[in-house]
Amino acid sequence: MHNSMAAYDQKKEACGTICLKYLLFTFNFLFWLAGGTVMAVGIWTLVEKSDYIILLSSSTYAASAYILIVAGAIVMVTGVLGCCATFKEQRRLLRVYFVLLLCIFLLEVIAGVLAYIYYQKLNAELKENLKYMMVEKYRQLSKERVTQAVDKLQQEFKCCGSNSSSDWVESKWVRSAEAKGRAVPDSCCKTPTSICGHRDHPSNIYRVEGGCITKLENFILEHLKIISAVGIGIACVQIVGMVVTCCLYQNLKGEPY
């Protein structure tokens, strides 16, 4: 009777271990896919919209994207390691896997905190920096990236000037002979053509309430929301993974280290 009970307990424990293994394997596969998604969001933020990063005085926005890329890469490596640890049933590998999960979790928390802090001070930063970039650095020597970013911003978001088109009156470039009498850059025009910036009438140029500040702020806020949502989503999944890892680790207590 005692032997049959012991055999039943062993069978039950083995069944539990198998269930945990397959659960953790499924988690790792989903985790690996999530890592690719996280990397994609980070790379998209930097590559597709990198022009606008130069218009920001703070590097927090770029830093949060870089953290996502690093976290995504670690997630993908960790997913593969997790699969190996699960099928080889080695507690040492499970410990390494758990530590990596914890590190990724902390990276995502840092990215989330940075995004939240930046969210709070974004409006003040844009008000302080965007007009300065347009007035002082647009079309100036060695400032080609700023010029390209401003032109892209005005065309893509259909706006003109930092707060309004009248901001360009103070521009170094508009006041110079190089502007050839333009009141605003050609990128302010609804239909951009050479020298179209001569006429700053509403029928010719974009006039948006709040100017480009409002447009760029809304754009960055949307990106911060995506970064935060991705980070929170992966973090929640990780907590499940860490719990399952701990359970499997305990079930393998009799296994070699």
Rank of each mutant, 00 (worst) to 15 (best):
V47N: 13
Q155G: 09
I104D: 04
N163G: 06
V240R: 04
T17F: 01
A115M: 13
V77T: 11
S142T: 10
Y52E: 02
K137I: 00
E255N: 05
V38D: 10
L24G: 02
E255S: 10
C160M: 07
T37E: 07
A40F: 11
V135L: 14
Y118P: 05
R175T: 03
D9R: 09
K225D: 03
F219P: 03
Q120A: 07
C84W: 14
K172V: 00
T193Q: 14
V237Q: 07
E13Y: 09
E48V: 03
W32H: 07
N28W: 10
V80A: 12
Y8N: 11
Y119R: 15
Y8C: 13
L101D: 04
K158D: 02
F87L: 09
K253W: 05
F157E: 02
V99K: 04
T191L: 03
L126Q: 07
W32C: 02
S58F: 08
L216D: 08
K21R: 15
E136Q: 12
G36C: 04
Y257E: 03
P256G: 04
R145L: 09
Q148L: 08
Q148V: 06
C103Y: 01
T191I: 06
L114H: 02
L248A: 07
Q250I: 00
A71H: 10
G211L: 11
L114N: 08
D167N: 12
R207G: 00
C83V: 11
C246V: 10
Y249F: 15
M242A: 01
T86C: 15
C160P: 10
T214M: 14
V244W: 00
E222A: 13
Y61A: 00
N163T: 02
I195C: 04
